[in-house]
Simulated scan of single mutants.
Amino acid sequence: MNIIKNIKNSAIKVLQTEAEALQNLIPNIDEDFESCVKEILRSEGRVVITGVGKSALVATKIVATLNSTGTPALFMHAADAIHGDLGMIQREDFVICISKSGNTPEIKVLVPMLKRMGSKLVALVSNTESYLAEQADFVLNATIGEEACPLNLAPTTSTTAHMAMGDALAVCLLEARGFSSDDFARYHPGGSLGKQLYLTVDDLMVKDAVPQVNEGADLTEVILEISGKRLGATAVVNGDQHLVGIVTDGDLRRMLEKHQDLSTVTAKDIMTKNPKTIARNEYAVRALNFMREYNITQLVVEEDGGVRGFIHIHDLMKEGIV
């Protein structure tokens, strides 16, 4: 039990240490941070992020976040940069160097080269008195009190702080550019997230063989329409072909419990009036949210009062949206 208790206590201490470090970053969002964001917005080049070791891994994550939120970015390993990869940098590019100490040998070799190329240089560091911070045009201060590692050696709190500062930078740029969910969808077409952002009801709805009966249809016709179209429901329309209700499998079961004489039962007698509907140009994920909110499995797709189709939860499941 003591071993288990120690594991829990160690994990809690790590999270508390890192959470405290992130809170302490808030005062570091200063004029340099604001100027850095404004300079990137004005820049006609890309954001190039570099680092070595764990900082290189943090750099690749920030690059991915920037690219997916509308800011063109690329990663350059600091060690590779001084062996030829500097050729990828153009004069108008904006370079961010990530380093906890700001004094690593690779950074000391790289920085003078970047300065000669004329690129703007940002230091994302945990040591504002370092060589890198002194040489940079802008300093993003990610100073921490201690690493979460009990030896205060393994980069833990520092990498979390650097990554969080990168997220803050990316989100500020996203908001300043007016980046919308439609823009996000263009950059994320794959997976369930992308589908939620670009698939519409019209893309998924059943358009052919739409179950539909007149409000005066008898019980046999209603049952055949529901079973034949295999959606578990049928729309009910009036003489003008306008939607007036819906009959589901559940409505049929409840009807059998209430009616003794089934010969006179019509669709109008058992339908649910004013059914939940959705427009064909709505996002499919909105249809899913509707179904969850009202605990139903299908929606009628309505347009100008008429029935244009059905969208069923199975359609959403097949596309991986659920």
Rank of each mutant, 00 (worst) to 15 (best):
residue 1 M to D: 10
residue 3 I to W: 01
residue 6 N to C: 05
residue 13 K to Q: 10
residue 13 K to A: 09
residue 18 E to Y: 01
residue 28 N to A: 10
residue 40 I to V: 09
residue 47 V to A: 04
residue 52 V to G: 13
residue 58 V to N: 13
residue 66 L to P: 11
residue 67 N to F: 07
residue 69 T to S: 08
residue 70 G to L: 14
residue 71 T to Q: 12
residue 74 L to C: 15
residue 99 S to W: 04
residue 102 G to S: 08
residue 102 G to V: 05
residue 108 K to P: 07
residue 111 V to M: 13
residue 120 K to S: 06
residue 121 L to I: 15
residue 123 A to C: 13
residue 132 L to Y: 06
residue 137 D to Q: 11
residue 149 C to F: 01
residue 151 L to N: 14
residue 154 A to L: 09
residue 162 H to I: 03
residue 162 H to L: 08
residue 173 L to G: 09
residue 177 R to P: 02
residue 178 G to S: 10
residue 192 S to H: 06
residue 194 G to Q: 04
residue 201 V to N: 04
residue 205 M to L: 04
residue 208 D to M: 04
residue 209 A to Q: 09
residue 211 P to D: 00
residue 211 P to W: 01
residue 214 N to Q: 09
residue 219 L to W: 00
residue 223 I to M: 03
residue 225 E to M: 05
residue 225 E to K: 01
residue 227 S to Q: 00
residue 235 A to Y: 00
residue 239 G to R: 06
residue 242 H to V: 00
residue 244 V to D: 05
residue 253 R to V: 01
residue 253 R to T: 04
residue 264 T to N: 13
residue 264 T to I: 10
residue 267 A to C: 00
residue 268 K to W: 03
residue 278 I to C: 10
residue 290 F to E: 15
residue 295 N to M: 10
residue 308 R to A: 05
residue 311 I to P: 15
residue 315 D to G: 09
residue 319 E to Y: 07
